[in-house]
Amino acid sequence: MNATTKVKRRHFLIGSAGTIAAAAVGGPAIGQDGSEPLPDYVAWKDPDDFIVHSKQTLETKRAAQGSELITPSNELYIRNNLPAPPDEIVADRDAWEIEIDGVANPGTLTVGALKTLGVETVVCVLQCSGNGRAFFDHETSGSQWSVGAAGNVVWTGVPVRAVIDAMGGAAEGMNFLTGTGGEEIPEGVPKETIQVERSLPTEAIDQAILAWEMNGEPMPLAHGGPLRLVVPGYYGVNNVKYVRRLALTAEESPNKIQQTSYRVRPVGVSGDPSQPSMYEMNVKSWITGPLMDAATGKVQIHGVAMGGVSDLEKVEVSTDGGQTWEDAKFLGPNLGPYAWRPFILITELSEGTHMLASRATAQDGQSQPEEFPPNERGYGNNGWRVHAVDVTVS
Rank of each mutant, 00 (worst) to 15 (best):
T140Y: 01
F330L: 13
G148S: 07
E184L: 14
Q366E: 13
G289M: 10
A388F: 05
Y235R: 01
M174T: 11
Y279V: 07
L246T: 05
E348K: 12
P373A: 09
H11S: 11
G332H: 08
R62D: 11
N375T: 05
I14C: 10
G378V: 12
S277D: 00
V283W: 05
R198Q: 07
R93G: 08
G336I: 13
I78Q: 12
D40N: 10
V299K: 00
G236A: 13
Y41K: 08
I89P: 04
E97V: 06
T347A: 02
P273G: 13
S350F: 01
T110H: 07
V269S: 05
G233N: 04
G303M: 10
V240P: 02
N152W: 02
G107I: 06
S367Y: 04
E280Q: 15
S253E: 05
F136P: 01
V189L: 10
Q144P: 15
G321K: 00
E370N: 00
G66A: 14
A95R: 13
A23G: 13
E36F: 06
G27Q: 07
A3M: 11
T324H: 03
N131T: 15
H223D: 15
R79S: 15
V123C: 12
K191M: 12
G179F: 05
D48C: 08
P186Q: 04
E68P: 00
F12T: 02
I194D: 06
G142M: 08
T57V: 14
S310Y: 08
Q258F: 02
V231Q: 01
P190F: 00
R228H: 13
S285Y: 08
G378A: 11
G157V: 14
P369V: 08
G380H: 12
P190I: 06
T361S: 12
K241Q: 14
V147E: 11
D206Q: 13
E172F: 05
H138L: 07
V317M: 06
S16I: 06
Y379F: 15
G271C: 09
V123F: 04
P201Y: 07
S318M: 10
I51N: 05
T156P: 05
R93F: 04
T361Y: 02
I344D: 02
P72K: 09
E251P: 00
Q259N: 11
D390N: 10
E217V: 15
N239T: 06
I14K: 00
Q259C: 10
T288V: 10
E184S: 11
G182S: 07
W212L: 08
A24N: 14
E59D: 08
T324C: 07
W286H: 15
E139K: 07
N131G: 04
Q275F: 10
C124K: 00
L248V: 07
E251R: 03
P85Y: 03
L345E: 03
S16G: 01
A95V: 10
P373M: 05
Q195Y: 00
P220Y: 06
M355N: 03
R10G: 07
E120L: 14
R359P: 04
Y262L: 15
G157N: 09
